[in-house]
Design a protein around this nucleic acid. Structure first.
Lengths: 320, 320
DNA sequence: GTGAAAGCGCTAACAA
DNA sequence: TTGTTAGCGCTTTCAC
């Protein structure tokens, strides 16, 4: 690998001038030409490592998410990577499995790699990330907000999605509508359930609400429980708060041989890789890739020095 | 942030001794105690950036894949991340969309970030990666081999999976068995089709082979074509070479209202998030996470200085 | 607009 | 085993 000194020597200027040229500051025209020629001949590519050591900031951002195998987070990753790459940044993948210990492990890495910032979907309270705030390292929360309101966030209109799901069911003739949501420690789960409650008003029967775990098996168990009549009068519609639980809930319905639509399912999110409409299922697609993109854009603007007040972006349904 | 000098001063030793201690080399016991105390008090965490500049190698590896939104690659990513993290390495996500330009862009980043190595699923010929080999930077191919046989690789027994798929169909009574495989520029697609051909022997009718694109829409179009009788006598079984095309193929079967099993589908891979068996569908799960783990392990051993002959690991069905 | 020189935080060679 | 010293490749004052 050639260094900045090799280029400088070849172009007959000092390393400082090459550095200025590479960073887009003005340089005499003839010198610029010679430098560019030297860069081409030597295939010079500046050492990002040396630059980070000097500037105390790498062109790298961390993406800290609970589970890369969940297509919702994958879509966020995709959006964030697109935006980062376009800005010349790399994205480091940090999978936490909702484990607080892993979260703080990654925080250490962010600091010691001099990463420019992080996009995080905090596991529960996200306490680990306060360390980043202390270091004045830009941080954007995605999907869930941090307790701290001074951290920028990009979330979805969870309550709105919950309400919308109920309206779709009502429109399709459902009368007794249940709700399967995520763990109550997750803000998104609480808000989606709140949307269900709000849209139904007095008709919202607390006996029809199930707190599950955002996973396939949990969704299935909750559906089983609802169908087993522990909820009084049989249900004919259910709001399911995420994609994985919907897969589980539908599996349970199928396993019981219920005709599609006997219990209509309104799910927040989409069935992975199912592109055609499925009978008896209403999907409310989430703008996950857009959320990833937005979070990255916001983070990059903070990295660029934007000192405006904290922003809390809330994304609603696509196309609205 | 505190530096190695802060720790050294506090512990009453030189920076070199702290460095040695941090890297697990032997240090006098009393000094070790004082250093550890200083580390704790100052919350010292060594600068990975400075270390990489000095050693010319960062504890970072790149994962270059075509599409993070494909659950097959996601599972590879998951396996690789697990292994990397356990070894103290971070994983940078590089999404290429099968674009050679992006591939070489990432190669530049790998070099200029001083990354320790890369795991790549090359788009087509993977020519971009020869630059890494020249730099003596460890490289492991996953899913598909590089043209160059001197690059370590972790692939699947694609031919075996193709043969196995046919055997499963025959066992279930299929007689006229078609095959929908990926693009012919992909080695995996060719090998899986070869497995189909080999298992059927003389019964393999070339008119029943479709080269598609490994995507949902392509799988659906191929299935439509096969059903529309362009293939002579009607088929009653089909080998589908990956998960996404199987989703498309099944959608087409459903759309036509064919009873499940009229055409039995043997797919290589699994339907995303479908855990129960689906009537008329046989799945051959791929050890994708295992492939990611193995690739990372192999890469890390090369990074660690292993100079043995190139390894070409081929993974078969899980549990065999 | 340009060059000399210092320094980011670490590790490795060397001498003690 | 330990400390001294030099240097990884870059950016950034500060003089000119």
């Amino acid at each position: 690998m050639s260094t900045i000194y090799d280029v400088a020597e070849r172009a007959g200027v000092s390393a400082a001038t090459v550095s200025r040229y590479m960073n887009g500051r003005s340089v005499r025209e003839d010198a610029a030409g010679r430098i560019q020629a030297a860069v081409d001949e030597l295939k010079y590519s500046p050492s990002r490592t040396a630059r980070s050591l000097r500037t105390q900031s790498a062109q790298v951002i961390a993406l800290v998410i609970p589970d890369i195998e969940n297509p919702y987070f994958t879509a966020i990753a995709r959006g964030a990577e697109d935006e980062a790459r376009e800005a010349g940044y790399s994205l480091v993948l940090c999978n936490t499995d909702d484990d607080a210990g892993r979260e703080s492990g990654y925080v250490d890495v962010v600091v010691s790699e001099n990463m420019a910032g992080a996009i995080v979907a905090p596991a529960t309270d996200g306490a680990a990330f306060s360390a980043l705030a202390e270091q004045h390292r830009p941080l954007v929360a995605v999907d869930r907000r941090l307790g701290d309101d001074r951290t920028d966030s990009v979330t979805l209109d969870d309550t709105g999605f919950g309400e919308r799901a109920v309206r779709e069911l009502v429109q399709r003739g459902s009368r007794r509508i249940a709700c399967i949501t995520g763990p109550d420690r997750a803000e998104t789960a609480r808000s989606r359930a709140e949307g269900w409650r709000r849209a139904l008003g007095d008709a919202a029967d607390p006996a029809l609400l199930r707190w599950a775990d955002y996973r396939v098996a949990g969704g299935r168990a909750a559906m089983r429980d609802l169908l087993d009549g522990t909820a009084g009068e049989p249900i004919d519609g259910v709001v399911v708060a995420n994609n994985l639980m919907a897969v589980g809930a539908l599996a349970e319905l199928r396993a019981r041989g219920l005709t599609p639509g006997a219990v209509t399912v309104a799910m927040i999110g989409t069935l992975p890789y199912v592109e055609d409409p499925v009978e008896g299922v209403v999907s409310l697609p989430l703008p996950a890739r857009e959320a990833g993109r937005t979070a990255a854009r916001l983070l990059l603007s903070r990295i660029g020095g934007d000192r405006d007040a904290p922003e809390h972006v809330v994304l609603g349904m696509a196309g609205e």
